[in-house]
């Protein structure tokens, strides 16, 4: 909606790796087990072992069959849950069951507070940050403008569409000026057209903020369109079975879905995933 392609050169996937920044997030030998609720008390191995480095400034997407622990992976990085084994670090510091400063999260479900106006919702994100009132105003106005919410500042979330509410949540994260943005299926509840447009907006703000983006999604096309690199997860216990480099230029937008390479990437993702998805829905493995 806001992003318009500025370059006329044809987009072709190149194999040049994205800017080789230092690892901003690093997972080493990470496992997650939990105890199934109820009296049986059996242990479920949800995830891992996983080794993964996120480069500073890259757009990394994770796809996987349902129930493979994608969201658990994000919660580990967000400090919303703790790994059973292994280390998760952000900018060299371990994450201890608490979200580090400089990390923002947007969830799949509508997380806007229905009792606060759009503006108050966005200001809520600044509660944990000590800044002077002027800077505060600047950041709120900036986030409102960036997400196209300026004229809705005094509306309540219930007066907005699902896509607009999700923008409120993104704006609430943006005001903290995060260096890493975690997106947990943020467009899962939206219709296909809105998702494509929201994808453009995410790409746009990824470029503008220079933040690293870590996206969890079940939609292969979404991952293929948005990410620099895509991690493919196995069925439970989720492990990374493939990492695909898309090689898209930085100023891409949703129109790359017409590219031949886009089809090639989704096809490769689906090749890796098909057997795993079969397992996830309880069918025996089938050779493609």
């Amino acid at each position: 909606m806001t992003s318009i392609m500025t370059t006329s050169k044809p987009i072709t996937p190149t194999r040049t790796p994205s800017a080789p920044g230092a690892a901003q997030v690093s997972l080493r030998g990470v496992d997650k087990e939990f105890i199934r609720p109820g009296r049986s008390g059996e242990t479920v191995h949800a995830l891992g072992p996983i080794d993964l480095d996120l480069r500073r400034g890259e757009f990394f997407a994770v796809v996987g069959p349902s129930g493979c622990g994608k969201s658990t992976l994000l919660e580990l990085v967000a400090g919303l849950s703790t790994a059973t084994r292994g280390d998760v670090t952000f900018e060299g510091k371990p994450i201890h069951n608490r979200i580090p400063d400089g990390v923002g999260v947007v969830f799949q479900e509508d997380a806007s507070f229905p009792w606060l106006s759009v503006r108050e919702n966005i200001a809520f994100g600044l509660r944990r940050i000590k800044i002077d009132p002027k800077e505060r105003e600047r950041r709120i106005e900036n986030a409102l403008a960036m997400m196209g919410l300026t004229s809705f500042a005094h509306s309540f979330p219930a007066q907005l569409s699902g896509g607009m509410r999700q923008r409120v949540c993104i704006a609430r994260t943006l005001v903290t000026e995060p260096r890493l943005i975690l997106l947990d299926e943020p467009f899962g509840a939206l219709d296909q057209q809105t998702r494509l447009l929201m994808g453009d907006e995410v790409l746009n703000l990824w470029r503008k903020t220079g933040a690293t983006v870590f996206l969890i999604t079940h939609a292969l096309d979404e991952a293929a369109m948005l990410a620099d690199r895509i991690g493919v997860m196995s069925a439970r216990p989720g492990r990374l079975i493939d990492i695909v480099e898309t090689g898209w230029p930085r100023d891409r937008d949703s129109r790359i879905v017409q590219e031949e390479a886009f089809g090639a990437i989704t096809a490769r993702l689906w090749r890796s995933l098909r057997a795993e998805s079969m397992k996830a829905i309880g069918k025996p493995e089938v050779e493609p």
Partner: peptide, 14 residues
């Protein structure tokens, strides 16, 4: 209370 609102509270370090 939707769980996601409580998660949001944690993410905002309340």
């Amino acid at each position: 209370i939707p769980r996601v609102l409580l998660k949001t509270a944690r993410v905002n370090q309340l």
